[in-house]
Design a protein around this nucleic acid. Sequence first.
DNA 1: ATATTTGCAAATAATTTGCACGTAA
DNA 2: TTACGTGCAAATTATTTGCAAATAT
Lengths: 113, 113
Amino acid sequence: MLHRQRRFLTAGDIQHELNGVDAKVALSTIYRTLEHLKSRGDIATRIDDAGEAAYIYCEPDHHHHHAICRKCGRVDDVDCTTMEQFAHSVLASSGFALDGHDMEFTGTCATCR
Amino acid sequence: MLHRQRRFLTAGDIQHELNGVDAKVALSTIYRTLEHLKSRGDIATRIDDAGEAAYIYCEPDHHHHHAICRKCGRVDDVDCTTMEQFAHSVLASSGFALDGHDMEFTGTCATCR
DNA sequence: ATATTTGCAAATAATTTGCACGTAA
DNA sequence: TTACGTGCAAATTATTTGCAAATAT
C-alpha cells in the first residue's frame, strides 16, 4: 500500500488507509512493520506540523530530497547532485567541513496548480 | 541563557543549564517560555535524532539555515539567498511551484577540525 | 511442531494543562 | 487588590513493549 502512495502518511493514516472505517490492523503491527521497512532502507521519515512522524516509501540510500505539495500532499523526488556540490562551495568559505545535508521543499505540484 | 548558547537544546538540556544538578525551574515553565519565544519569532525548533524537540535562539524570520557540528553541536548560520534561487531553477523544470524550503547541514565546524 | 506475526493492553516518555500559590503592579 | 508567572501533579498523546493467541513454515 505504501508503495502506491506518493505522500507522507502517519501511523494513523496508514491504519485508516488499510482498514477504512473499522480498524483491523493494530497500530503496534504498523509501527513494527515501519521499523522493519526502515531497517531495510525502504522508507523515509519526517515529522509533520503536528509533531507526528510520517512515512513515505522511497529509497533513502539513493540520496535525494522531497518536494511536498501544500494542497494534495503529493511528494516529488528531487535529485540533489548539483545541489550538493553547490552547498559544498557555499560552505567552504565558512570553514565548515560539510559531510551531510537535509532538504525539504514545499509548494504546489504541477497537478494542483 | 539561550541567547548565549550557539547550539540546539532540548527542554531537559535547558533545565540542566539553568539549574545545574538540582532543578529549580519546572519543565512546564520552560515549555511555556519556549512557546512564548516561538510566538515572538525568537527561536527555531528541530527534532533531534532521539525524536525530541530542540531549540535555538535565532531569528527565523530572517530566513537562513543551520550547519550543525557533529562533534560539538555548535550551529553556524548559513545564508540561503543564492541557494534559494538555485532551488527555484532546479525545480522549475519539474513543474513544481516552490514557495518554501528547509535545509540543514551537518559536518565539522572550523574549531573542531 | 516450531518459528514468526499479530492484537491487545499496559508501560514509556515528551509535552500540555488545571489549579493553587506566590509575586509583582 | 488584581493580574500574571510558577511549580506541582495529573492528563494527554504518540510510540514501544510484554505476552498470549493466531498464523505460517
